[in-house]
Design a protein around this nucleic acid. Structure first.
Lengths: 86, 86
DNA sequence: GCCTATTTGTACGTATGTATT
DNA sequence: TAATACATACGTACAAATAGG
């Protein structure tokens, strides 16, 4: 576990914030906080919630997109990947 | 062709600079400007040469790493991918 | 061993563009 | 028309690892 599942970012420790946040967001997906094929909060919202720069939020999201956890629809939002819609 | 092979970045056109630069760098590799398993110029050098921000250079490099054209050795440099060394 | 320069890694803030609602 | 949301780009700063003298 290289992140705090409760959701606070440690700006001092050895794990970079973008990886902590990726872990936190992945945990929220796993916990069902956000449902498949539904948008997660906007980048601006995550900036406010976690106290990091937008570039850091975007980098975290990029990690999860790469892992197949999320997908991004430009100008729409970032979504939780789930089974194909019928 | 969505970039200028001669190497100038168009900051006005529809193709984002990071993709133009990725194309330019790939062309230089293809042309043999830089040899396999040899370092390309540093990020700072490319910033100077092409008049873009370092973030843009890094993004261009990331594209080419993703395409298998380059690879990065942290704290050492960015290299042209080539056949495995004997 | 020590200091310095080089190079990539990470993060911040800000601004503008584009598409959708 | 205006607000929202992601895309791109700029500049700046500091950290960490490496290499050389």
């Amino acid at each position: 576990m290289d992140f705090d599942p409760d959701g606070s970012i440690d700006h001092a420790g050895p794990v970079p914030p973008y990886r902590q946040l990726a872990g936190i967001l992945a945990a929220r997906v796993g916990r069902g906080d956000w449902q498949p094929n539904r948008a997660i909060p906007s980048e601006a919202h995550l900036v406010q919630e976690y106290g990091v720069a937008r570039a850091t939020v975007r980098r975290s999201i990029a990690v999860l997109v790469d892992q197949g956890v999320l997908f991004v629809v430009p100008q729409r939002g970032t979504y939780v990947k789930g089974p194909a819609l019928p």
